[in-house]
Amino acid sequence: MKNLTYLLLIIPILSLFSQGIGINTTLPMATLHVNGDMKFTPKASDATRLVGIISNGEVKEFELGNSFNITTGTLTVIPPIDSNIFLIGDVDQVLTAPTTSQYDNYDIGLANINIDKTIIRVFGETNGYSVSGFTDGFDGRIIYYYNSQNNNVTFFDLNLGSDAKNQIITGSGGNEGTTGEGVAEFIYDGSLEKWILINIR
């Protein structure tokens, strides 16, 4: 009689597991069916981890690395970039060309749209123009400023039109530039807090 009682108790349990386990539901539609809120307490209090399932089915936490970024709640995956590949970004001067001849604290998108770009292609200017400095420099940041138009561009040496941390050191003590189309190479020196003009061609 005792064996029969055990058997009668085991059958409903096996039936329960074959249908799945339901929390707050009597008709589970998966192995584990939760009807309602579920709370997961991560190991860290900051948003630097993801929760995922590994190949054996275990739930694990993963730290975010350089290839993952969360911005305003959206996860983006940044593919690894070959160090020998220089990505090209664009700056359109069409809207500023009629009113601006000297670009002070010039925002060419180094902190946003061109954050991962090394070659910055500039176009849309209708006259010759000058640049006294660039925003968002950081130590070791390199840019190739590609003036892709026939209008001349002049880079001012330590010009007060731009904030001190955005200014350019041309190396010659004077202003330098391209005659029409050309490329100027800059690197940001974090200790000097200046853009250094390395080469122009």
Rank of each mutant, 00 (worst) to 15 (best):
N3Y: 06
Y6Q: 11
L7R: 10
I11D: 03
I13P: 04
L14F: 05
L16K: 05
F17D: 12
G20V: 13
G20M: 01
G20W: 01
T26P: 12
T26S: 12
T26Q: 08
N35G: 02
M38P: 10
F40Y: 09
P42K: 00
A44H: 03
R49K: 11
I53V: 07
I53K: 01
I53F: 09
I54M: 03
G57F: 02
E58Y: 10
E61V: 13
E63I: 00
N66W: 07
N66M: 02
N66T: 06
I70G: 01
L75F: 12
T76D: 10
V77I: 15
P79K: 08
P80Q: 10
I81Q: 15
L87Y: 13
G89P: 02
D92W: 14
Q93P: 00
Q93L: 13
V94Y: 08
A97T: 09
T99S: 14
Y103L: 13
N105M: 07
N105T: 04
L110R: 00
A111E: 09
A111G: 06
N112V: 10
N114C: 08
K117G: 07
G124R: 08
G124E: 06
E125C: 03
T126W: 00
T126L: 12
N127Y: 01
G128R: 01
Y129G: 02
Y129E: 03
D136W: 03
D136G: 03
G137H: 11
F138K: 02
G140K: 08
I142E: 14
Y144A: 12
Y144K: 14
N150A: 15
V153M: 14
T154H: 00
N159I: 03
N159M: 02
L160E: 04
G161D: 09
A164Y: 14
G174F: 10
N175A: 14
E176Q: 01
E176R: 09
T178D: 07
G180F: 00
G182N: 02
A184Y: 02
K194P: 02
K194V: 05
I198A: 07
